[in-house]
């Protein structure tokens, strides 16, 4: 009983700590780790309630739920990471474009030659961003410029 509470209580503490870290820290990777810790805390609670005492076999249902939950968490983590990388690329290319236009306006010299390794993924696949997507709406002050989750 007390071991069960210890384990489950630790889960709840992990949940709260994960929440705190998620809400306070700015960097996305920290947030991602934090939310995984919070999820781990919830899974802890499930594991704890499966415990049936020393003699009885544990309840398999919460175990199975936790397995399912882990797969869901893995999937979500993968998607968050991919979105994050894509966001960084988009920002890099935006910064690149800015830099290029600045250098072009500063001098009429041709832009510095770019090696293939410098090419950004956006440039590699022009089909990804169709002209219809790059509407002038993006350039209005009204366009939401939401804070990126890490800054």
């Amino acid at each position: 009983m007390s071991a069960q509470f210890l384990y489950g209580g630790a889960g709840i503490l992990l949940f709260a700590l994960g929440l705190w870290s998620l809400l306070v820290h700015e960097a996305l990777l920290r947030k991602l780790i934090a939310i995984n810790i919070a999820g781990g805390g919830v899974f802890h609670v499930f594991i704890a309630i499966a415990y049936r005492g020393d003699t009885a076999p544990p309840d398999p249902v919460p175990h199975a739920l936790v397995l399912t939950g882990i797969v869901v968490a893995v999937s979500a983590t993968a998607l968050v990471l991919a979105l994050h990388r894509r966001l960084e690329q988009a920002e890099e290319s935006a910064a690149d474009a800015e830099g290029r236009s600045e250098s072009a306006s500063a001098s009429s010299a041709a832009p510095p030659p770019r090696t293939p390794t410098e090419r950004t993924p956006t440039e590699r696949t022009p089909t990804e961003l169709t002209p219809a997507d790059l509407t002038p709406a993006d350039l209005t002050p009204e366009t939401l410029h939401p804070e990126t989750p890490h800054g």
Binding site: F15, L19, L22, L28, K31, L32, I35, A38, G39, V42, V45, G69, A76, L79, V80, L83, H84, R86, L87, A90, E91, A94, T122, E128, L129, D133, L134, D138, T143, L144, H145, P146, E147, T148, P149
Partner: peptide, 27 residues
């Protein structure tokens, strides 16, 4: 899906908020 910066940033936030909501529900 549009791949625009605003869309990705907004949906990244949406995803995290959604995860937080589901986790709380799960607890």
């Amino acid at each position: 899906l549009t791949g625009k910066r605003e869309a990705i940033a907004a949906n990244l936030r949406y995803l995290l908020v959604g995860l937080l909501g589901s986790l709380t529900y799960l607890l």
